[in-house]
Design a protein around this nucleic acid. Structure first.
Lengths: 221, 221, 221, 221
DNA sequence: CATGAATGAGGCTTCATTCAT
DNA sequence: GATGAATGAAGCCTCATTCAT
């Protein structure tokens, strides 16, 4: 079986999934951003990495911001797909919520279905860089273009489970977006700013524990 | 009475609070970053704004990252000072927690004690840009330099109140850092990505309600 | 009847008048240069406009300079054809001169004989861009290639009428080339730099009046 | 005596006449544009020529278009100054007109008052490139900025003499702008497209003869 | 101490063009 | 004959920074 993540948002000029070079761009941009960070990342460095030219990359993405949006959208789509897959045939909303939270909170494992994407590296990028995709002065235009559709769909999907459990709870979307962002942040704090969290680098399932408890307690009536 | 916020972290080269030019740099960098965003902000534009030169600004701050750290640290210090002030003579831990959460969650009002700082603009900067201060490849070195001390002290202070209320709760620092970050995020989402939150632009005290409920529920034993 | 303007100068690689794509290139390049100006005009933008590719356009024209030369030559040929047509059976040299001057000085009307050419737009291009075709460092080579033959033939044709009227006048070609260039320039000035001319935007026949008087007076003995 | 041409239009960011580097930029840009033409001229090549960097040039001029405007304005100012100087104490309008036309039509001689400007080279630039300064899509904005003030003032000055001679003539500004542009064009045609003119390369005073006759005849009542 | 002048380095982007199908 | 893919080269511009006064 050959699965492909197809993004509804078109932050690309030319679909990178249709050519070899395109897939190389995706693969190596993940590698490179993970290594050197978004700030130092440039199309020139990427082109050197893949033995191509800046001009070629510009055929696929208008600029590095659009590429970042693509990568992050890919991640959210992949996560949604993974959650959907796991929720298959699970009826109990409580059980469904638990699985959903676990899936986005626990450490990511490489997914053999997508050869040219290193999900673990991409997860690190999402943790460190994803908020930069929207914390810009252009957020409203980008939102109009639909660039955050995947993230919003994922949050909504889990928020609906929350509502199944407690239809009276007033802030289901807020809670899930908080939980998702917090799962990233706490992992980052554990690595780099440990005084801000009790989560440790080593026992990484603590994040699941922390987030799951927080969500569950909050929606109790 | 003349109060001054003195930062323990020295992200500056020369204390901007000691000269006219220094205060102008602080005042106008807040104004300018708020207006055009951190990405477009440069020392050149700032120097034009204040009728000075890039070279002069370099006397105070090594680069815009250090300036950002200064501004954000100033904000955390000011917030801590404000919270301390409000907690004065309050005994009940529950009451103390409530006040602390309210202080960092509710909309900021200009503080007449600090003439050259527009706290409302600074708050918008903290919301949109503060995470960029640590989401970098240099976070560990910056942390070693103590650049995040103010934030960590504030989180710790509130986490201690949490522990007073429930000494068994395992993640007080995680919870408070989550709460603080979420207070920013939810406000940003309300403005720009409303599908991610139930908080609305208009009724801005909803953030307090949401965060307070979340923290309170979570630490119930 | 089906008339075709056949250019003696071969600034094209493949005659655009022989294929659909070729005619589309001509039609849309006129449209696009008129809209955005020669400087911003690129084969990429043109190819997007006509739903084709840069590579395809390169089959017809080596570069945008050659395309410009083609369009302008087309214009001069069309103008010559129009003048010839109007001079048919007119004997009096004075009358002939008058008609010739009127034809190149008065506002252009769309010619239904050439469907894929918008003569009014082309006239605006000739006004704004035609001098750029020869004001280059390559003018001598281009001239050797015969790229300005049409313009020179037109000027010569009218200069011959001048000589019929006054065979003693020393500068007939200078006068006609001045008149033609001035007809363009004055129209441009009327639109954009009105202090350089008494011609107004609205009463556009003033150009004819001005030019005709100038030529007539100058060749009086 | 030390004379300086001070331009009313500020197409520069920083006045090049105030520093050594600035004067070098002016001097060498004239040399280089004359040599290679405006199209091939870049700030990079110029910076190499003067042993400096692009960045330094950008401190003086926003782009090459602004630099061109500066050079051409300088030329018009210098020409106006030269004409004024020559008209000193001349009363007869006919005589004044003659001198004015001669001054702008005859070959330019180097002016020892302005060491860092090669007026002969600048004249060639004016001939080949000056129309490109206004034949753009930005002409209206540029005009609003006052970038063509010098040219317009010169034309107006000579047009006023025309009116002194014949106050009934309807197109004095048109006539003078035509005469000035034609003086350029005819010289260019003599050099590169000789079939468009009777002017020859060698006897360069023919231009004066041609233009003077044309103007004189045209304004006869 | 503040500033005016200058610059090295590199980012971002497009152009014009070629090659393979 | 037309097009999709790719690219080398260069243009344009700004950043962050230093030096001399």
């Amino acid at each position: 079986m050959r699965i492909q993540i197809k993004l509804s948002e078109k932050s690309y000029i030319k679909d990178p999934d249709t050519t070899d070079l395109g897939r190389k761009i995706v693969e190596n941009s993940i590698k490179l951003i993970d290594e050197i960070g978004l700030e130092s990342f440039t199309f020139k460095k990427l082109s050197k990495e893949i033995g191509s030219t800046e001009a070629s990359i510009y055929r696929y993405f208008e600029n590095k911001h659009k590429l970042l949006i693509y990568l992050i959208s890919w991640y959210w789509n992949w996560l949604e797909y993974t959650i959907d897959y796991q929720l298959n045939n699970i009826k109990s909303p409580n059980e469904r919520l638990k699985i959903a939270i676990e899936t986005f909170s626990k450490p990511i494992k490489a997914d053999p279905n997508f050869m040219h994407v290193d999900e673990e590296a991409l997860h690190r990028i999402v943790i460190s860089e994803s908020s930069k995709a929207y914390l810009t002065k252009e957020v409203d235009e980008d939102n109009k273009e639909g660039y955050f559709r995947s993230y919003k769909r994922l949050v909504d999907k889990i928020a609906q489970i929350v509502l199944e459990i407690n239809s009276k709870y007033k802030y289901p979307h807020s809670l899930i977006s908080t939980a998702v962002e917090s799962a990233h942040n706490q992992r980052f704090f554990a690595q780099h700013l440990p005084s801000l969290t009790e989560i440790t680098k080593t026992k990484e399932d603590e994040v699941v524990d922390y987030i799951y408890h927080l969500v569950n307690q909050t929606i109790k009536s």
